[in-house]
Simulated assay, not measured.
Amino acid sequence: MPLDYERIKNWRFADTRHSYTQRDSILYALGIGLGSDPLDPSQLQFVYEKQLQAFPTMSSILCYPGFWMQDPATGINWVKLVHGEQRSIWHRPLAAEGVLTGKTHISHVIDKGADKGALVIAERNMYDVNNTLVATIQQTTFCRADGGFGQGNAPVAALPRVPERAPDYRRRIPVAPNAAILYRLNADPNPLHIDPQTAAAAGFERPILHGLCTYGHAARAVVQDCCDNDPAVLYRFDARFSAPVYPGETLLCDIWREGADQIHFQVSVQERNVVVLSNGYAALRGTQ
């Protein structure tokens, strides 16, 4: 059934205040596999309170407004939702602890057609206690059963394709078998990521990894290979979710550098030869 464009485009979100601690920053870092080598200083900086740094993609779980599309008033068939893309900009480095206020609005509602669904883009701006903008998150949700409403916004600029030449770097990242169990403690307790029966009912052979956990693993590779392990260098990080990952699999992150500050990346699963993050784009600080 088509969604109500005016209702969704003007959906009102309460401001979300999120107080987080060093412990939260460490838990997030552990959830995306940092600390797997306890003797690596580049990993310890995210999991040891001595001179602790927050990993940038932790912003994806901060000030989250909740699963608002599950509200019956939206009229959206939430069972058929798919997380399509995630785009992040850090206007300043994320602190290891602090208080942020998130202000969310719907920036785009795009009709792909009656048989093709719709895209809903929620934009979240996060401000610190001084009302300084810290990060902007754009989350694209593919509403597979809700297209055909006949109006809406023009599509946003598509994420670029990766270059056709061989990548400049390939980072092999093992995903721990318990990665989803650990990551879900951050913000997403969906049983799809821990309950085998729920996963089977959704058509998966076993619980799958959170897409945003895969997103964080990919950011680790870019920070390591392109930012000299300095998270403050990462300014932008965008990707499209193409396929799920199973905990225990191995990620291959291919990275292309374009000039000094532009990065393209793609993530695949080694065991199945399936692309799971496509159209990856990152920018390093200095391009803004």
Rank of each mutant, 00 (worst) to 15 (best):
P2V: 02
R7C: 09
F13S: 10
D15I: 07
H18C: 10
S19K: 15
Y20L: 12
Y20H: 09
S25R: 05
S25A: 13
G35V: 11
D37P: 03
P38Q: 09
P41T: 03
S42H: 11
S42E: 06
L44F: 06
V47S: 05
V47G: 04
K50Y: 04
K50T: 12
L52E: 09
P56V: 03
S59H: 11
L62S: 06
C63V: 07
Y64H: 14
G66H: 06
W68S: 11
W68G: 06
W68H: 09
Q70L: 13
D71W: 06
P72N: 13
V79L: 13
K80S: 13
H83Y: 02
E85N: 08
E85F: 04
R87C: 12
I89E: 14
R92H: 07
L94E: 09
L100R: 11
D111K: 12
K112F: 09
G113P: 05
A118W: 01
V120A: 11
I121Y: 15
D128L: 04
L133G: 11
A135G: 08
T136G: 12
I137S: 08
Q138M: 10
Q138L: 15
C143Q: 07
A145I: 04
D146P: 02
G150N: 08
G152F: 08
A157L: 14
V162Q: 11
P163S: 14
P163D: 14
P174T: 11
P177V: 08
N178H: 09
A179K: 04
A180Q: 05
Y183P: 08
R184A: 08
L185G: 12
D188L: 05
P191D: 04
L192V: 07
T198D: 05
G203K: 07
G203V: 09
R206L: 02
I208D: 01
I208G: 02
A218R: 01
R220F: 00
A221N: 00
V223F: 00
C227L: 05
N229I: 00
P231D: 03
Y235V: 00
D238L: 06
D238Y: 03
D238H: 11
A243H: 07
Y246Q: 03
T250D: 03
D254N: 08
A260H: 09
Q262V: 15
F265D: 00
S268I: 01
V269I: 14
V269D: 02
V269F: 02
R272Y: 05
V274E: 15
V275E: 00
V276T: 10
L277I: 00
N279R: 13
Y281Q: 12
A282R: 01
L284R: 14
L284T: 03
